[in-house]
Design a protein around this nucleic acid. Structure first.
Lengths: 202, 202
DNA sequence: ATTTGACTAATTAATTCAAAAAGTCAAAAG
DNA sequence: CTTTTGACTTTTTGAATTAATTAGTCAAAT
């Protein structure tokens, strides 16, 4: 019964995701996940060969959902600017939701040395770049220059701005209630100037 | 003889700078600095109350020199673009030169909790922002919109891009011979689009 | 094919302790 | 009175040891 096994795998993924999102990967033990599901640890290991595989599978699930949303935005957003703004909001949503997994920076959780995780992250970044690229390509008024390096530069700039501002706030002792809002605002402001800059060259 | 004391302080600063730049602050001991100068440790402590004060004084010296160069660029560069490009190169030069002091990111060296260091860094960032702001203000074609938020956004974007790309490269196992060159290239590319974007709005 | 109790192996966290480095002081030298 | 120092104390750092937790395995059972 391959179907049933898949269903169980999904159940495990769901429970694991919940714990990971709450406490992070390192602070979640395989025993806890097994207990949550009211199964034994060996059962858990029957479905996933090790903890990293489980974590990578969870991360993969999150990315799948993310890219489904991203594609939907890409297809339906009216203008280029609207699309890029919506993508900024989407990234924010996922950042807040899965903050504990540190899927963004590669510092602590999920040892960066791990091959399959690094691959997943790399592929995801590539995928996101391609999506952004398609957003630019769709815009006829920007068809003059190659979309790939532009998308690359845009994405690096937006991500860098996000990382930088977050880092700045973290090491500040001041109130950070607004926090993400400032990041989003600046990312949008940069997006606007960026698009104007391209339009100006066209 | 206040004059002689100042001269000695300068000598100490110079030697300390050399060691700090080579080995980093943490890996340099007060004994080594004293030995370099052929004086005893208590003598060293006669001029600087503690190691942090010494390190902060060294960092201050570096920043002073940096801002002297920055101002010279600001005064002499022809176009706005030239000025911003030259500043990017200047930052690169200082980053390479004083890499070991980690004056940029606030991770390891010089405990970020230290009050006087945090103050120095904050003031320096503010100063740099003001300089960039003046570069924008000088450009009559951009006099329509407020220079302050524009300079702020530009600086955050450029710094973020730099940090982000460096972090990316660090955690990559690939050749990084080019390394900084890619960073500089992208910072310049973003600068161009940014300026075009402003021009387009004006 | 799936599950588990009872195990082992590997990692992580806490503790100890010695070495290194920071920092002090009373006395001396110019 | 300013500057310097040998000899000292206090703190910090890092390696080594150990205890505890957690990852991962296996033979047997359903």
């Amino acid at each position: 019964m391959i179907e049933a096994a898949d269903k169980k795998r999904e159940q495990i993924l769901d429970k694991a995701l919940t714990r990971f999102a709450h406490f992070g990967i390192n602070k979640t033990t395989m025993n806890e996940i097994a207990d949550d599901l009211a199964i034994s640890k060996p059962s858990l290991y029957y479905y996933f060969p090790d903890k990293i595989s489980l974590a990578v599978a969870v991360a993969g699930k999150i990315f799948d959902e993310f890219f489904r949303r991203l594609n939907s935005i890409k297809e339906n957003a009216g203008s280029t600017k609207n699309a890029l703004f919506a993508i900024i909001e989407l990234r924010k949503e996922y950042f807040e939701k899965y903050y504990m997994l540190h899927l963004t920076e590669s510092t602590t959780e999920l040892n960066i040395n791990n091959e399959s995780f690094r691959k997943l992250m790399e592929e995801s970044r590539e995928k996101e770049k391609t999506s952004i690229q398609e957003v630019f390509t769709k815009d006829e008024s920007l068809s003059q220059f190659p979309a790939e390096p532009i998308a690359d530069l845009y994405l690096d700039s937006i991500m860098g701005l996000g990382m930088f501002l977050m880092a700045k706030q973290t090491k500040q002792l001041l109130p950070e209630t607004k926090g993400l809002e400032e990041v989003i605002a600046k990312q949008k402001a940069l997006t606007e100037i960026f698009l104007d800059g391209l339009a100006n060259r066209a």
